[in-house]
Simulated assay, not measured.
Amino acid sequence: MSANVSQPFYQLIPDTVIDAVESMGYLSDGRILALNSYENRVYQVGLDEAEPLIAKFYRPGRWSDAQIMEEHAFCFELAEQELPVVAPLQLDNGDSLFHFRDYRFALYPRRGGRAPELGDADHLYQLGQTLGRIHLVGAARPFVARPALDIQNYGRDSIELIARDFIPASLREAYTSLADDLLQGIEACYAVAGEVRNIRVHGDCHGGNILWRDDTPNFVDFDDARMAPAVQDLWMLLTGDDRQQQQLQLAEVIEGYNEFADFDPRELHLVEALRTLRMLNYSAWLARRWEDPAFPRSFTWFNTERYWGEHILQLREQLSALRQPPLKLL
Rank of each mutant, 00 (worst) to 15 (best):
L97C: 06
D241P: 09
Y108T: 03
P229T: 03
Y307W: 14
E272G: 04
V271F: 10
Q184W: 05
Q246A: 09
L97S: 07
P265G: 11
M236K: 12
Q232R: 08
M69E: 15
P109W: 04
P8M: 05
L183T: 04
D241S: 14
H72S: 00
M227A: 14
R278Q: 08
D15H: 11
L313R: 15
R213I: 05
I254C: 05
E77N: 05
Q11R: 15
A169L: 15
I210T: 06
I32N: 02
R62H: 15
A3H: 13
L89S: 01
L286S: 01
L89T: 00
S28Y: 01
G138P: 05
L89W: 00
D204M: 09
L178F: 08
G30C: 01
P84D: 08
A179C: 07
D95F: 01
D92M: 04
A3P: 08
R62K: 11
L322T: 10
Q44Y: 04
L322K: 12
L234H: 04
Q324Y: 05
Q7A: 14
A174Y: 07
D157R: 05
Q314L: 13
L211C: 11
A121K: 12
A115H: 14
L211Q: 09
F76N: 02
R111K: 15
D122C: 07
L89I: 10
I18Y: 01
E195V: 02
S64R: 11
V192S: 07
A294G: 03
E187H: 10
T216D: 09
L178H: 04
Q67R: 03
F100K: 02
E259I: 06
E160V: 10
P326Y: 14
A121L: 12
L237I: 06
L131Q: 09
P296Q: 04
P229H: 02
L124M: 13
N218M: 07
I54F: 06
P229L: 06
S170T: 14
R104H: 10
A191K: 13
D223K: 03
W285Y: 09
R297A: 15
P326F: 12
I159M: 08
A284L: 01
D48F: 12
Q67P: 07
R275E: 12
L124E: 13
H269G: 00
R110F: 15
Y26P: 01
T216Q: 15
I159N: 09
N281E: 13
A106H: 03
I32E: 04
F295Y: 15
L83S: 00
W290K: 01
L118D: 08
I54G: 06
V231S: 03
G132F: 10
L89N: 02
R172L: 13
L97E: 03
L171G: 04
R101G: 00
Q314C: 12
A228V: 09
M24S: 06
A273M: 03
V5M: 03
Q44I: 00
A139P: 03
D92E: 15
P296M: 10
E160W: 05
F166D: 08
S6F: 12
Q7C: 11
D214L: 11
T276E: 05
A163P: 07
F295R: 02
C205W: 04
